[in-house]
Design a protein around this nucleic acid. Structure first.
Length: 266
DNA sequence: ATCAGCACCTGTTGGC
DNA sequence: TGCCAACAGGTGCTGA
């Protein structure tokens, strides 16, 4: 479900609510929700939350001990602080010494909590953040140089760029007027620069609107985002392009639905 | 390097 | 109305 804008929204909402709170107990109701590459859930007990931020699509909880707890919500995960009522599909409950809690709920059981000792960026093998000021057009072009993979598929590779998912890959390519099937290494310098601009523009707008709720995404307050109303191509197969009225096409790339305007993107 | 296929899960939707 | 295949904001593994 959530991509960069949704995770950014959740992390910003959670930060003031969780910072400074001490973990007293963790209730794991679906064991596979704990990523076995990290520590066991009990490692969190006694630790205090120092801050909450986003790394790629991970909600990243920094702990006073120096450890990091990362949550990946995958398709349908939700993180809710101090829920007023029991949530359906609750997989993990982190209880605080003050009596409150943080709940991970997830219908499809794909979401994962991982407790990391060292540098989380390294452990998660994340590429550069789209908003990193070091990501210049030249560096962006450099990432794509020589790659024959289709640009849409390239954008989804978290080891290159961290945070782009299926919605915003299609949206940014439409905004930059680049066909999703173009080999990444074949983008011109102008196209590379335009795509980087479009990625940032689309992501920034989506963050402003608190993310896109296409199906069941909700933020840390349980509320949907608003950006789905602004989507230009994602989920609009067969509908007229907002720019030229030609029907939006849907194709499958890397097993993911991909939407584009065959007229605007050539 | 790259890609297709499948696995992980459950719920909703659209076509017949 | 009812059934059932297709599909879903993601990743990770295998094998070609």
């Amino acid at each position: 479900m959530p991509e960069l804008p949704e995770v950014e929204t959740i992390a910003r909402d959670l930060a003031p609510k969780l910072t400074g709170r001490t973990i007293s107990r963790v209730d794991v109701r679906w064991q596979r929700s704990i990523d076995p590459r990290g520590r066991a859930a009990r490692a969190l007990v006694g630790d205090t939350i120092a801050g909450v931020r986003r790394l790629g699509k991970y909600v990243t909880i920094d702990l006073a001990s120096g450890r990091t707890a990362t949550v990946h919500l995958r398709m349908t995960g939700r993180l809710i602080a101090d829920p007023l009522a029991a949530l359906p599909h609750t997989r993990i409950v982190v209880y605080f010494a003050d009596g409150g809690s943080l709940v991970l709920s997830d219908v499809r059981k794909f979401a994962r909590l991982r407790i990391i000792d060292g540098d989380p960026r390294e452990a998660l093998e994340l590429g550069i953040d789209p908003f990193d000021p070091d990501l210049t057009p030249a560096r962006f072009l450099g990432l794509m140089r020589g790659r024959t993979t289709k640009i849409k598929v390239f954008l989804l590779d978290q080891r290159r760029l961290a945070g782009i998912g299926n919605i915003y890959a299609s949206e940014a390519l439409f905004d930059a007027r680049i066909p999703p099937t173009r080999p990444a290494g074949k983008l011109t310098r102008a196209q590379g620069a335009a795509l980087l601009r479009s990625l940032r523009k689309v992501l920034r707008k989506a963050i402003y609107h608190r993310g896109s709720s296409v199906d069941d995404y909700v933020d840390a307050e349980g509320k949907p985002g608003e950006f789905q109303k602004k989507l230009a191509v994602y989920g609009r197969g067969g509908l007229p392009c907002r720019r030229c009225r030609a029907p939006i096409r849907r194709v499958v790339l890397a097993q993911r639905g991909t939407f584009f305007c065959p007229v605007c993107q050539r």
